[in-house]
Write a protein that binds this DNA or RNA. Structure first.
Lengths: 124, 124
DNA sequence: CTCCAAATCAGTAATGGTTCTTATTATGGT
DNA sequence: ACCATAATAAGAACCATTACTGATTTGGAG
């Protein structure tokens, strides 16, 4: 894998963000100072980094997927109202893959868990 | 909600299927004998039935959502290889929403859980 | 049964997120 | 400096899904 300025910028953008970002958001943040950057490049690199395990791609039913700097096993809670994505580490959750493999015969290697609700802010 | 022949056909198709079906698959099964049926109608009715709780819509990252006749709390395991979707009931999983609500401050009302792996058939 | 408003429909256009294609440019080893 | 390879920008293509349109069906009231 060759070094590329774009890939570095994209990785740093996700790493430096407190929130989870969509590809579009990464693009918008970088575009002003990198006028030739293209959205396709953002997607390609985010996918590469996710496959390689550097980042984590979180599928969001009904919306654009978001990318997370943390790749350790944790789960996500999405606010129906404002769309914010919160991380939460649910104990015993990693053991589930093993548990499911034994019981179902599937060779389970990962899972997506998304809880839906209303965040504290939006409850007011 | 008024009675409609189309809605009834769509519901029966999902109910009678052993597998989980995409909207497209429901459409393909009904189209031959219902030549004027349109895909939009299938989507609209599947959504209605899902909102109403009669069916369950399962989001499939990277593919078309599937619909399930069972709406009781259970989880899904998808084969990366053949795409088949298996149901599995994971104990204690319903309690998670309550658990998360207490800990995170979100008012959690549901969750999606999808495990990814290789089914027994495809392992050979 | 007939009339009518509301629900539903078929057909099709539009949307949005994402990937693919193509021709061009950057990278890093020799 | 040269060259094969990787990466890029730009935009077209793709796919699942929804939105829009004007026509049709439904079920209750008279």
């Amino acid at each position: 894998m060759k070094f590329s300025r774009q890939r570095e910028l994209i990785l740093q953008t996700v790493r430096q963000s407190e929130e989870h970002l969509t590809a579009e958001q990464v693009y918008e943040r970088l575009k002003p100072e990198n006028t030739t950057l293209s959205l396709g490049t953002v997607y390609r690199n985010l996918n590469l980094l996710a496959e390689q395990g550097t980042l984590c791609r979180i599928p969001v039913p009904g919306g654009a997927d978001v990318f997370d700097r943390n790749n350790d096993g944790h789960q996500h809670i999405i606010c129906r109202c404002c769309g914010s994505v919160m991380d939460w580490r649910i104990p015993k959750m990693e053991e589930l893959d093993q548990y499911l493999s034994e019981l179902t015969g599937f060779a389970v290697d990962r899972h997506d868990f998304i809880a839906w609700g209303t965040c504290k802010n939006c409850q007011n």
